[in-house]
Simulated assay, not measured.
Amino acid sequence: MIDRLGFGCVALTSFATPGEAMRLLNTAYDLGIRHFDTAPIYGQGYSERLLGRFLRGRRDRVTVATKFGLTPPRTPNLPLAAALALNAVRRRLARRRAETPSAPATAEPVEPDRRRIERSEIEAAFDASRRSLGIDHIDLYLLHEEVPAALTPQAFDYLQSLRASGKVRRLGLAAPATRYGALSPEDLEGWDVLQYEAGPAWPGSAGLIARFPAQQHIFHSCLKGVARDGDPQAAGRALAERLTANPQGLVLFSSTRPDHVRTNLRVLAG
């Protein structure tokens, strides 16, 4: 089962030093993980750079997923060590603010305007991700939090050209499962992968594998809602259940604790 498990890099920049992030990634790799998932928005771009450092010397032994479309690309401009130290300070300040009582918000939430994603935005994002990751091709390139209707025809054609040239091996969507409800199989022509949350906390994901059999499915956020109750093996069993429910796909999990990674994979291996 471990060969169908992937590691999510959303929390890499929660560490105070690059060395701590490398130890976590090396733990996952040494235990058999070979798929790593990141995005430009994770840690303001520094998650991709940390993963890029980890990939040196082992690129041909792993697959890498990153994303585009959620925000315009930005280029990280601080050294990794300085960026992580600054993030640590920001987290401390955020915790202090959270401890300070504040008046409840009364404004109604505003629904953001749906925007169109242009080819030029994807070109810039793709080049920025390859530079940050230090790789010549991206194994899985995912449209982040959107569906194909958000793309202009020129943007869609550009993505297809990236795959045809081998610069991208597969294309996919990484949106909430509920957003796939209005799609038909025809809407997914040209897309290889659907990535979404799945598990006890996500009833909206039920039935998507049967509805879209032409795509590989990747589950994430599978441990939300899992009752631990002091049971260190509960998370590992939950991952095993999601792998069984997705026999042709992958399951992602994330952690900042090497010991938790070891425990989860020990349960799966057993």
Rank of each mutant, 00 (worst) to 15 (best):
F54L: 06
I138S: 05
Q215A: 00
V226S: 02
D127V: 14
R211C: 01
E241R: 13
G19Q: 12
V110L: 06
R91V: 01
L151G: 07
A245V: 00
V62E: 04
L173E: 10
P112G: 12
P76H: 04
E121A: 14
F36R: 05
L239C: 08
R257N: 14
L188Y: 00
R237W: 10
A83C: 10
M1A: 09
A198L: 00
L31W: 05
Q233W: 00
R92S: 14
S129T: 10
D136P: 09
L173V: 13
Y141K: 06
F15W: 04
A65V: 09
A103D: 14
P153S: 05
A128M: 07
P232F: 09
G270W: 02
N77F: 07
L265D: 03
G32C: 07
L31K: 11
D192A: 00
V110I: 11
R91T: 15
R242G: 12
A201N: 14
T75S: 12
A150Y: 01
L183R: 12
L208D: 08
Q216C: 13
N264R: 10
R4H: 15
P148G: 02
L250R: 03
T63E: 13
P153A: 04
Y29L: 11
A21P: 03
L243P: 13
L51T: 02
K167D: 15
S165L: 05
D139E: 08
R130H: 02
L50M: 10
T38D: 03
P101L: 03
V226R: 06
A182M: 03
D231G: 04
P40E: 06
F68K: 02
L50I: 13
I117G: 11
S205W: 04
F15H: 11
L70N: 08
D229F: 07
R130Y: 04
P76I: 14
A85M: 15
E108T: 15
A11Q: 14
T106P: 01
R23G: 04
